[in-house]
Every structure is written in structure tokens, then in C-alpha cells.
């Protein structure tokens, strides 16, 4: 939570209690309550060190993703929300395709929101846990640097885990 004096410093802003987050990708702007936005450690550091202007630009995060992030922060800033409600709400936020989740995890990482990072990572893990490693390679654009012999050797060591996989 930001302390009151910090808010005073930002007194030039017309509304003390809100911050505007702007996606630098598509210039979408979101006005959010300060205590909601401060769940992001990155934003909190900016505000604390007085680097935050009226509008906080958020590079590399699209408006679509930023909206999800803000939804998460809003839910978790609500003191009356029960743990079950939060779990359900989190599940709703991460019920997305793998590519959206990847964007979301990057956003959570950039904005340093631990809870969102965890639920998104878990969801990504859930989405890839039953995929063959070749598919995982493709999704993440990882280059296969094994020789066929090396790959076979690594695989042979844990052969039982490959049952039913190509």
C-alpha cells in the first residue's frame, strides 16, 4: 500500500487515488484505483520512487492482456473476497489458450505480481503436462540441440515416462 505522503507528492494528478495504465502496444488506457495497481511491485516501485506520472506506460503488454492483469488485481484487492471466490475468479482469468497464457505470464513477470505469476505458470504447466515433448518444443520455439543418439539416450533413461507418447 502506498503511504499517504506519496500520494501528496503526486498531487499534480487530478485524482489522487487512481492511476492510469497505458498499454504502449495499442495505446489502450485503463484507469484503476491506486491500491489495485500497487499489487504490481513494478508499479509500486515506480510510485514509491516518484517516477510515476499521470499515466504509467506499460511497454510490451497489449491492452487485452493488461485488462486481464487488472481484473486479477481488482479481485485480489477486494478485502471481502473469500479464498474460494478468488480461486474461481483466478481460474476464469487463466482459462485461455496457451499463447494468451504465455503473454499473461510475461506480463505478470514484468509487472512483478507474484500471485498472478503463480496461477498462470500453473495453468501453462497444466496445458503442457500431457503433451509430447516435441509439441512443447514447438510451442516454445526451442531448438532441438540433441543429436539423435543423445536424444535416444536421455529418453532411454526415463523410458517409463514415455509410455503412450511418440
Amino acid at each position: 500500500m502506498a503511504s499517504a505522503p506519496e500520494n501528496e507528492k503526486n498531487a499534480s494528478a487530478p485524482e489522487k487515488k487512481t492511476l492510469t495504465l497505458k498499454s504502449m502496444i495499442n495505446n489502450e488506457e485503463f484507469v484503476v484505483d491506486e491500491h489495485v495497481a500497487l499489487q504490481s511491485v513494478t508499479i509500486k516501485n515506480m510510485v514509491d520512487s516518484d517516477c510515476a506520472g499521470d499515466v504509467i506506460p506499460v511497454p510490451t503488454i497489449s491492452g487485452e492482456i493488461l485488462a486481464l492483469v487488472i481484473e486479477y488485481c481488482k479481485n485480489h484487492a477486494n478485502p471481502s473476497a473469500s479464498e474460494d471466490d478468488l480461486k474461481k475468479a483466478d481460474a476464469g482469468i487463466v482459462a485461455k489458450d496457451i499463447y494468451t497464457l504465455i503473454d499473461l505470464v510475461l506480463a505478470a513477470n514484468f509487472l512483478d505480481i507474484k500471485g498472478l505469476l503463480e496461477v498462470t505458470s500453473q495453468k501453462i504447466a497444466d496445458s503442457i503436462k500431457d503433451l509430447p515433448h516435441q509439441d512443447v518444443r514447438e510451442i516454445f520455439g526451442v531448438e532441438n540441440d540433441y543429436t539423435p543418439e543423445e536424444e535416444a539416450a536421455v529418453r532411454a533413461e526415463h523410458d517409463w515416462a514415455f509410455e503412450g507418447f511418440p
Binding site: D130, V136, V142, N144, H158, A161, F162
Partner: peptide, 13 residues
């Protein structure tokens, strides 16, 4: 079990 499989993704993994 998934991790054991994903060892085959790359040397880094």
C-alpha cells in the same frame, strides 16, 4: 513424470 519427458526437449531443459 512430465518433467522426465521434457528432459528430451533440449540440453538446456
Amino acid at each position: 513424470k512430465s518433467l522426465l519427458r521434457l528432459k528430451s526437449v533440449s540440453k538446456h531443459w
